[in-house]
Design a protein around this nucleic acid. Structure first.
Length: 977
DNA sequence: ACCGCCGGGTGCC
DNA sequence: ACCGCCGGGTGCC
């Protein structure tokens, strides 16, 4: 008994004591209970039906949950029930408790559920007039091996199954209707079909929703057609009272065609969805437009505008950013008080406006005001005459102190446009039934945006760039130790920007006693940027995200599903798409049917995704034209010839290296001397760039024993060089990019958690998975964090010398400058020391430049990017960029030339770099130059790059051994062996 | 619940 | 009367 109780399955959730909360709010806590319990469930696929039983649900008069004939119900174990530890609770599809399973049957079910032998599903087969209990058909699902033991345990309690009926592997999609296992009507999908269908899940959605919506004129950037479509769609999602998928209204009742659940209450709608546009289509801008355009009841966000700033509006002066960028300071989010404040007009369309006295205002009256409003916000038309006209319209001061502030002349003024706006409560979407909002709902104002740290600055920039300078938009950066933790302060902002980590950390700290500030606030809207980041609901992040309180919820993601169907569940749970936000229903209705190849299940899944997602790709079209016509991109290789002296040095190193490696080859110890091989390759690559790069790599790797400290230092050095080389980016255990890299004494690099797993799994001595050399966990070495990107900052003052590659780059830069001095360039290298070396000639030649590498703090990084992106005449024209710096999403569109100083092992890294400037917002043709030293390891690397790209496309089932072999082949090719 | 079960009242017909 | 029978109170787990 004790043993099975300890191994709680998904039906049991000992933490949740539902009896502490039996009152009104129990519906929500029950949903949470089910969700919590269900999330522990192992994969729902591969189950077979053991059999079915008729049972009864008792005590229904004590609960409010309603079930109609044919509806599915959930069975949830209640091990803490004070009356019966075997209790099994029954809830309906809405998460409301219906009753309990009768105790004799519950006693049997508790045994098999607690020991994880089965998952139980229930359907109420028919109606009775009994007010005290109701029938339920229970289906028991589990893995084949567990079938006999299940039957036996049930038999002990007197429940027998008819064995010939029970076995069927098909789930079918019958939902609640059928009580007997059915033969599938159609043949199930093959694994291949399933995989394709799954991959296409989002891609087939690529669609152009018709209908465009203009952004509020608070937005200074004009939206492209596809962005207007997205805005229109997003507004509709937020405002319409349309039922969620699979719900329909039938004679005053709301009916779900998948669970057969019907309810009097309108099911809670999803006010939001997934914007899954490809990267670069402007999800950020569209979201900003949404925030400004769709406040309550389809009105624009009411904000104050400072007229005085209008004239300088279009220039993005640095001064404006700091008012938003400073995290933590309570006043940090407010822009300095400026002259004459006006609130924004609310309406831009010809909607009849009813004035205070009930008279209908003619649209023309409105237009007059609008004209004025347009002037206020107009990007380039901050013309004096119109402003004067605006000033004349100022009304006496005594009306509404909130809207008044000092004008330039010191007089208190308020603009009458506002009065028009205030009266303009006519909803915009006349065709769509506009949702009703309660007073409490109407009081929510702020939008919370959660994003990865790497794109924080991008959001700030984009707000800066796309919102009119005179708009007093309160954007608060909730980040850093000084952040303001007042929930009411946060809720009073227009936008609060934070990261997943801050959210999770706050949540974790607050959880035992109270709620975190972000969880205490009632948000108008929560936006998850790169929303695919949260995949697991059991992580701190996942839990924190799910518990936010908001009226509207959005997920922005270029790749909504990364691995499996399960990823999608988290997104649906976040959006609270009923009833799929509860895992039990998701598993029953979607996950299991689909993973068993059920076509109807797949089609239901597609319906769900279609209803809540908008996705366009770069190749989508609007009215037959591509969404974004990116300027052309030209990629060329520039061959660099070494000087005779460089060539001599290179050949010396190559011959030596070839000798070493071929001797390893001869005795088959290439992999156990991997570090050596990499070091040789590294030296050759450095020869190709600049001789001074070699200076520090002097340690003889095979050198005799030293003190442990020396050995350790050598390993650190090796790890550093391995990481810098980019060669060993993938961990041989998880086959993914190395996280938390550590190096073994045999110089193989793994993720720390991966190698720890290996050590744990091997009985006695752990061996390196690649070369089988023994090692212990204490011998693993990691790079001290402060050194990760720390390189000497080129004190190359006097002893500086040039190289062929340096000359090649400088030649290009000088030529470009002479042709068009406004052209900016990215100079990319993996060797940050090479970037340091390049600083000297750039300075000598009078190029103004900035440098972006991994050592920069977030704040400094943002500054550097902003400086570089600036179009001011004295702004930098070159950015020295470390290949590994920053993540995706960096926006460096000011550059239109990219110089890749040396080939990278990973072509994707190069592509990513290029895409930082060849992306939306790029107006010029982009030229990419890849420098390759002729007759060198670099040329060989390019060949291998090509090979790998091919490989990636073909290979899915490549095994570890294949990888090893291919590595040796790689090395052979690289060294011309 | 038009049941079953419990426990107090009651006790030939 | 340490039973049977009657009828009211009661009722999930």
């Amino acid at each position: 008994m004790a043993s099975y109780r300890r191994r709680f399955g998904w039906h049991s959730h000992p933490e949740v004591d539902i009896f502490t909360d039996r009152s009104e709010s129990s519906a929500e806590s029950l949903s949470q209970a089910i969700r919590a319990a269900a999330s522990e469930e192992p994969d729902a696929d591969g189950s077979v039906l053991f059999g079915q039983l008729q049972g009864s649900v008792v005590g229904i008069r004590y609960y409010t949950g309603v079930v109609n004939p044919g509806e599915m119900v959930a069975l949830v174990r209640q091990p803490n029930n004070p009356y019966d530890r075997n209790a099994v609770m029954v809830t309906n599809a809405d998460g409301n408790q219906v009753g309990h399973i009768k105790k004799e049957l519950a006693a049997a079910m508790a045994v098999v559920m607690d020991s994880n032998l089965v998952k139980v599903e229930g359907v109420v087969p028919y109606r009775t007039n009994n007010a005290f209990n109701m029938p339920v058909t229970l289906s028991f699902w589990g893995t084949k091996e567990n079938n006999p033991i299940f039957k036996q345990r049930m038999a002990v309690h007197g429940f027998k199954f008819n064995s010939d009926v029970a076995m069927t592997t098909s789930y079918g999609s019958q939902g609640g209707r059928a009580r007997l296992p059915k033969k599938p009507v159609t043949t199930p999908l093959s694994a291949e079909e399933l995989k394709n269908a799954f991959d296409d899940l989002f891609d087939v959605l690529v669609e152009s929703k018709d209908g465009e919506k203009e952004a509020s004129e608070l937005v200074s950037t004009s939206l492209m057609p596809h962005q207007k479509q997205a805005l229109s769609w997003m507004c509709a999602c937020e405002n319409s009272s349309k039922l969620p998928p699979f719900w329909e209204e039938r004679g005053g009742l709301y009916y779900n065609s998948l669970t057969f659940f019907s309810a009097k209450e309108r099911p809670q709608r999803v006010r939001g969805g997934i914007l899954a546009d490809d990267m670069g289509l402007g999800k950020t801008l569209t979201t900003i437009a949404l925030i400004l355009t769709n406040f309550h009841q389809g009105m624009p966000l009411p904000v104050k505008r400072c007229e005085g700033l209008t004239e300088t509006a279009p220039s993005r002066s640095e001064g404006r950013v700091d008012s938003t960028i400073v995290g933590g300071a309570p006043s940090g989010s407010r822009r300095p008080h400026s002259p004459q404040v006006v609130e924004t007009p609310a309406e831009t369309q010809e909607v009849p406006i009813v004035s205070k006295d009930g008279k209908k205002k003619r649209p023309s009256v409105m237009l007059e005001d609008l004209d004025f409003a347009t002037v206020l916000g107009g990007p380039t038309t901050g013309t004096k005459p119109k402003n004067k006209r605006a000033a004349k319209r100022a009304v006496p001061k005594d009306e509404d102190p909130d809207l008044v502030c000092e004008s330039t002349s010191g007089a208190k003024t308020k603009n009458r446009v506002q009065r028009a706006a205030k009266k303009a409560v006519v909803p915009k979407e006349v065709a769509e039934p506009c949702i009703k909002e309660s007073a409490a709902e109407l009081s929510a104002r702020a939008t919370l945006i959660i994003c990865p740290l790497s794109v924080l600055s991008n959001w700030l920039d984009q707000f800066e760039q796309h919102v009119h300078a005179d708009v007093q938009l309160n954007v608060y950066l909730y980040y850093g130790p000084e952040r303001n933790r007042s929930a009411s302060f946060l809720a009073s902002q227009d936008v609060v920007l934070t990261t997943y980590n801050v959210l999770a950390a706050d949540h974790a700290v607050a959880i035992p006693k109270n709620t975190s500030p972000l969880h205490a606030a009632q948000w108008l809207r929560v936006v998850l940027d790169e929303g695919h980041m949260i995949r697991n609901p059991n992580t701190q992040m996942g839990r924190a995200v799910l518990q936010l309180q908001a009226q509207r919820r959005w997920i922005l993601s270029g790749t909504p599903i990364q691995n499996s169907l399960k990823d999608l569940w988290m997104l649906l749970a976040f959006l609270r798409l009923k009833p799929f936000d509860i895992k039990e229903w998701w598993n029953r209705i979607i996950q299991r049917p689909v993973s068993q190849g059920d076509r109807a299940g797949l089609s239901n899944l597609q319906t769900i995704v279609r209803c809540i997602t908008l996705r366009r790709t770069k190749s989508s079209t609007v009215d037959g034209r591509p969404l974004v016509a990116l300027p052309e991109k030209m990629v060329c290789m520039e061959q660099v010839e070494l000087t005779q002296q460089e060539r001599d040095e290179y050949e010396l190193a190559r011959l030596e290296g070839q000798g070493t490696i071929s001797s390893y080859m001869a005795v088959g110890t290439v992999l156990s001397n991997y570090a050596d091989v990499l070091a040789i390759l590294m030296r050759l690559r450095q020869h190709c760039c600049h001789p001074d790069l070699l200076a520090r790599i002097t340690s003889d790797l095979t050198g005799g024993a030293g003190t442990p400290a020396e050995l350790r230092e050598r390993l650190v050095e090796k790890l550093r060089s391995v990481l810098a080389s980019g060669f060993d980016e993938e961990c041989a255990v998880c086959l993914e990019s190395v996280r938390l890299p550590v190096i073994t004494p045999c110089a193989h690099v793994y993720c720390r958690p991966c190698i720890a797993k290996v050590v744990a799994s091997e009985q006695e001595g752990a061996r390196c998975p690649l070369c089988r050399s023994p090692f212990s966990i204490s011998q693993l070495v990691e790079v001290p964090p402060e050194e990760l990107d720390g390189e000497d900052n080129g004190a190359h003052g006097e002893g500086w010398r040039t190289s062929s590659k340096v000359e090649a780059l400088l030649g290009n830069l000088v030529r470009i400058r002479s042709e068009d001095s406004s052209i900016k360039s990215l100079v990319v290298s993996q060797f940050t020391r090479f970037l340091s070396i390049l600083e000297t000639p750039l300075r000598e030649q009078g190029f103004s430049f900035v440098r972006l590498d991994g050592t920069l703090s977030q704040k400094r990084r943002a500054q550097v990017i902003q400086e570089f992106q600036s179009s001011a005449p004295d702004s930098p024209v070159v950015m020295l960029l470390s290949l590994r710096a920053g993540g995706v999403g960096l926006n460096l569109t000011a550059a239109s030339r990219v110089f890749l100083m040396e080939p990278a092992w990973n072509p994707a890294a190069e592509e990513q770099c290029i895409d930082r400037c060849h992306r939306m917002g790029q107006t010029r043709k982009v030229f990419v130059t890849k420098f390759i030293v002729k007759d060198s390891v670099e040329e060989n690397m390019v060949k291998i790059q090509r090979g790998k790209q091919d490989l990636v496309e073909k290979a899915f089932g490549s095994k570890n051994t294949d990888r090893k072999a291919s590595r040796i082949d790689d090395i052979r090719a690289l060294m011309d062996l």
